[in-house]
Simulated assay, not measured.
Amino acid sequence: MAVRLKPVRDQIIVVTGATSGNGLATVEEAIRRGAAVVATSRNAAALEALAEGMSAGGGRIAICVADISDPSAVERIATVANDAFGGFDSWVNNAGAGTYGTLERVPLADHRRVFDVNYFGVLHGSLVAARHLRGRGGAIINVGSILSDRTIVQQGPYSATKHAVQALTDTLRMELEREDAGISVTLIKPGAIDTPFPEHARNFMDQPPRLPPPLYAPSVVADAILFACETQRRTLYAGGGGWLSSLLSRAAPRLSDRIMEKLGTVLQQKPKDPGDPARRDNLYVPRDDALRGSQTVHARDSSTVLQVQKIRPAGLFLGILAAGVAVSMTRLGRRRL
């Protein structure tokens, strides 16, 4: 069957990781546009506060406390959606966890935990969503990262999971297309976004972590996610800085590595601004959630690259632009190396 997606205002949307950062921005904007939302998170208190606030404004919202690394918990999310709204139209796999530190310093158990959340959580959500949407149609949106394209020092486990999420998403898309399931599958690749991620991540560096600039507001990612809920797209980059970083790494990988080796650590440390201690380290248990980080940063409220991708000829435009930049970067990299 052909993929037919409803306008956001007519949809029921499942959002994981709904009480913080990109997930919270998506829930708020989806409800503002008229959608009903099933919001899920490990943080019961934050979910209840979110539901109370959205309902008070007339929003339609159901909540489900769930750790997406647990397959039975993910099944429960679908049950809540069916009980509250009779099903769902889009499923957004957004929840994530991370660490800062070298591969050697991060304990193996923490490597596994990041994979349990970021890869297996997305796998659980994707399979449950596909089973419910198959034959009815709808959208599955997976939130990857610019780190799906290249890795960054001090975030090896997180980068590895985002590479895996890209492979998972591409495989899922092919399988569903082959069976003509009528389901759109999109991978969102945010750059650095001003969320509590640096505070939530477990830190093994000797300095407080931060995200490298340029940063964008969570509303940019929410815009990409909700666009994908109603418009079939393969991939959407949220933030021009991340897109350029990806392009550089493809055009001149050795040059990109050298830059990362020299600047990657210092750009991810903020010695005099550690952020809110109540948010620190949510790898295994929830901590305080919020829309944005508490560190002092500058974040852009819009992304020109994202807006260009939302135009139908955007793929051709970006392809031509990417080819030109890639040629230039390759020549520059060869001269420098």
Rank of each mutant, 00 (worst) to 15 (best):
V117K: 04
V8M: 05
A39Y: 00
L226A: 07
D288F: 02
I68Q: 13
A45G: 05
F120E: 10
L211M: 14
P107W: 02
T102F: 02
G138M: 04
L267P: 15
N142I: 03
N94I: 08
I311G: 00
L291P: 01
L127H: 15
I68Y: 12
D288Q: 09
L263R: 08
R131D: 15
A252P: 12
V65G: 03
Q295F: 06
G53A: 15
Y216K: 06
V80C: 00
L332I: 14
G121Q: 00
G315N: 10
D223E: 12
P277R: 11
P212F: 06
D273H: 03
A95Y: 01
F317P: 04
F115S: 15
A73W: 14
A73G: 09
L5T: 07
D288N: 11
E75M: 09
D149N: 09
Y100M: 05
D289M: 01
M329E: 14
P71V: 05
S145V: 08
A25V: 04
L123V: 10
D301P: 14
A109G: 08
R210F: 06
L226P: 07
C229Y: 11
H200K: 11
S41N: 14
G144D: 02
T186L: 01
I141K: 01
A181G: 08
T99E: 12
S159L: 05
P196N: 03
F115P: 11
E52D: 14
A36H: 07
G135L: 08
D10C: 08
V143A: 00
S246V: 05
A49Q: 11
A30E: 11
Q232E: 13
K272S: 07
A97F: 02
Y158M: 13
Q154W: 07
V165S: 03
D110G: 07
Q232F: 02
D194N: 13
L147Q: 14
L168T: 01
R60M: 12
R32I: 08
I320T: 02
I152N: 11
F88V: 03
L316W: 08
R173D: 13
D281V: 10
Q155V: 14
T99K: 05
A228L: 05
I12S: 07
V15H: 01
L108W: 09
T330M: 10
I141N: 00
V92G: 00
R76V: 00
N82R: 06
R258P: 06
P209K: 02
F317T: 02
N203F: 07
V128P: 00
I188Q: 04
L24S: 03
L321G: 11
E175A: 13
L321F: 13
A167L: 10
E52R: 13
V114A: 09
T19C: 07
L255F: 13
V266M: 03
G125P: 15
D289C: 04
L248P: 15
G87C: 03
F317H: 05
L123T: 06
A109M: 10
T296I: 12
